[in-house]
């Protein structure tokens, strides 16, 4: 049954993607289609990256209300970008190849994640400790970013703004290729390891007892999460609750946490939300709002709902 629900989610995702591409086609159709196809590619990447990253993080931390951004992972990416603007200046920053900037920010993220988050996740502290530490680290990274942002001149600041807000309308086109490769590789690795991930969801004792090398596996999964968060943040900026929203919906739809079902279902629902939401906002509501705001609002509601219904684990 759960498998059939995945196909349902996939069909919905395809429908929304088609709507995004095909609604209100006017003027030079080839040109519009190309533009939209590139945007859709970015949205699909972000959707898959956020969905998979959230599932993986929830699995290794053993609770279902965490998302990478509650843990401050995307703030880490932004800190890297801000530091680059600070060091190079706005003009210098704009002149650097975005791919190079991405790689630098990614390297900083991997380093910091290894230093800060790995010990936290390995020790598997209680949910409260994890949440508090993650939230504090997020605040620390964001404060550092805004401190640096205050130190730069207004022109540089304008450059920085471009990268620090979620924007589904104008994804960073230069990063599409590298993002597609990274997302595909990370998603494929997660899929191949789906049975191991199922076992890891039992917690360290259960997983070790079943022969999983917990320390290395956690490090590997965390690396995947960092890669995926970097991709999505680089493409459209930080999205706090999207992951939580789609994983909670996927779990509700399929009624299981088996990764063979949950991973594709969450990814398909994320595509549905992003492509469908964008299509509705653009064509139905005439661009009245930005998708980022709507997704954050809904995701925030789901977060509160999960807390209120006591579904914390």
């Amino acid at each position: 049954m759960a498998e059939r629900r995945v196909w349902l989610a996939a069909a919905l995702a395809l429908l929304c993607a088609a709507a995004f591409l095909g609604l209100n086609l006017r003027g030079n159709i080839a040109f519009v289609l190309e533009l939209r196809a590139l945007k859709l590619l970015a949205l699909v990447q972000v959707a898959v990256a956020v969905a998979v990253a959230t599932v993986l993080l929830q699995t290794i931390t053993g609770n279902r209300i965490l998302t990478p951004s509650i843990m401050g992972l995307d703030a880490l990416y932004l800190l890297g970008q801000t530091a680059l603007v600070f060091l190079l200046g706005g003009i210098g920053f704009a002149a650097v190849d975005p791919r190079l900037k991405f790689v630098i920010a990614l390297a900083a993220m991997v380093g910091l994640a290894a230093a800060v988050f790995l010990p936290l996740v390995r020790a598997r502290h209680s949910l409260t400790v994890l949440l508090l530490t993650g939230a504090l680290l997020g605040i620390l990274f964001r404060s550092l970013s805004s401190l640096l942002a205050r130190l730069i001149d207004p022109n540089d600041f304008a450059v920085l703004q471009g990268v620090s807000y979620a924007n589904f309308n104008a994804p960073q086109g230069e990063l599409l290729a590298i993002g597609a490769v990274l997302t595909a590789v990370a998603a494929a690795v997660a899929w191949r390891q789906r049975h191991v991930l199922d076992v890891m969801a039992l917690g360290p004792a259960g997983a070790i007892s079943l022969g999983v090398d917990w320390r290395w596996s956690v490090a590997g999964v965390l690396l995947l999460v960092v890669l995926l968060v970097a991709v999505s943040t680089a493409l459209v900026g930080p999205v706090a609750f999207l992951g939580l929203l789609v994983v909670a919906l996927a779990e509700r739809l399929t009624g299981t946490r088996r990764h063979a079902v949950l991973l594709p279902a969450a990814a398909c629902i994320a595509v549905t939300v992003l492509a469908g939401g964008q299509a509705v906002l653009q064509h139905g509501l005439g661009g009245a709002s930005t998708l980022g705001v709507v997704v954050e609002f809904l995701g925030g509601l789901v977060f509160l709902l999960l807390l209120a219904t006591g579904n914390r684990r």
Binding site: G62, A201, L202, G203, A205, G206, L210, G211, E251, R257
Partner: peptide, 21 residues
């Protein structure tokens, strides 16, 4: 290696993680 040992020895504890579903 953990995989080898997992065919010889197992431990049962009540630490369920996300297993509730």
């Amino acid at each position: 290696p953990g995989r080898r040992l997992a065919r010889t020895l197992t431990i049962m504890r009540q630490d369920t993680g996300l297993a509730a579903r």
